[in-house]
Design a binder for these strands. Structure first.
Lengths: 146, 146
DNA sequence: TGCGTAAATCGTAATGATTCTGATTAAGAA
DNA sequence: TTCTTAATCAGAATCATTACGATTTACGCA
């Protein structure tokens, strides 16, 4: 997913383009980090110091519904990141210090589903948590730990 | 894990036995469901109609810290279940209707860790969501959906 | 380019889950 | 039985998130 693609998805689905949506999307497009609404609010501080929390939450929700963002629940909060390539199903390592993510191409679902006859599977989650190399060595991460 | 074992863990760690803790543990011991604090409050209604929410949350937290319970975050809430056999690491299918869980013996971690040199792994999560056979056929589940 | 309408944003209030506080009660050791 | 400390209680506080009503803005169309 790239920025222009995300904006196109907004338009196609009848959503208006606003500077604030553009700025929100730019933040995600430039990052491979999972971010909370509060992270976003901090990051967007200089551009829009008084952006309403409602606007952030509402747009994160819209973006996720349109498949522009994906999210996970971690540490009692929702964390969002720019959606990865839809054509290549995969999972993530997530740094619990800075939120940065790394692709894990393995998906364990194919070996499992056989043992669940009678069950109706609607989704799954495979995530690995820990510290990324940067956060292991130094403490130069900018996003609050979780 | 069985009930007497859980109570023993409490004692060994210097926690007192109370009727309410006993009742809480009994609820978990008799069930393979992931339950929220509210689920517990409903279940315990007849035995202790006025059990304080604080007591529930505090004890769930104590039990989890002692390894008596395990928990997951799902649908914006923490959900707890009686801890499984510690000697056999595994994961769970979780019914999003009634919370019932089923063991998934496969763990994908051994195939993955090689690709994460430089990363410090602290944990992982592999869960499959959907409807259990009972919830697929009928709608006779008692616990609120999530 | 200017208008009009529906959507977006704002500030604030409400919600729901969880945690904290200070007072009261009870477990269990002496 | 007494005493000390932990457990419980009711209610207030907190944190993330959502809802509300009023105001502003994007953008299709004349």
């Amino acid at each position: 997913m790239i920025l222009t693609e995300a904006i196109e998805i907004l338009k196609v689905n009848g959503y208006k383009y606003t500077d604030k949506r553009g700025e929100l999307l730019r933040l995600f497009a430039d990052s491979d980090k999972y971010m909370t609404a509060r992270d976003i609010q901090q990051e967007i501080q200089m551009a829009y110091p008084s952006l309403s929390t409602d606007t952030i939450y509402r747009n994160l929700s819209v973006f996720a519904a349109l498949g522009i963002l994906e999210y996970t629940e971690l540490g009692g909060e929702k964390r969002f990141r720019f959606a990865c390539d839809v054509n290549h199903h995969h999972h993530h390592f997530i740094c619990t210090e800075c939120g940065v993510s790394k692709d894990i191409s393995l998906c364990p679902m194919k070996e499992v589903s056989g043992g669940l006859s009678g069950y109706q599977i609607s989704g799954h989650k495979f995530e690995i948590y820990g510290k990324c190399p940067d956060c292991v060595t130094g403490s130069d991460c900018t996003v609050e730990g979780y």
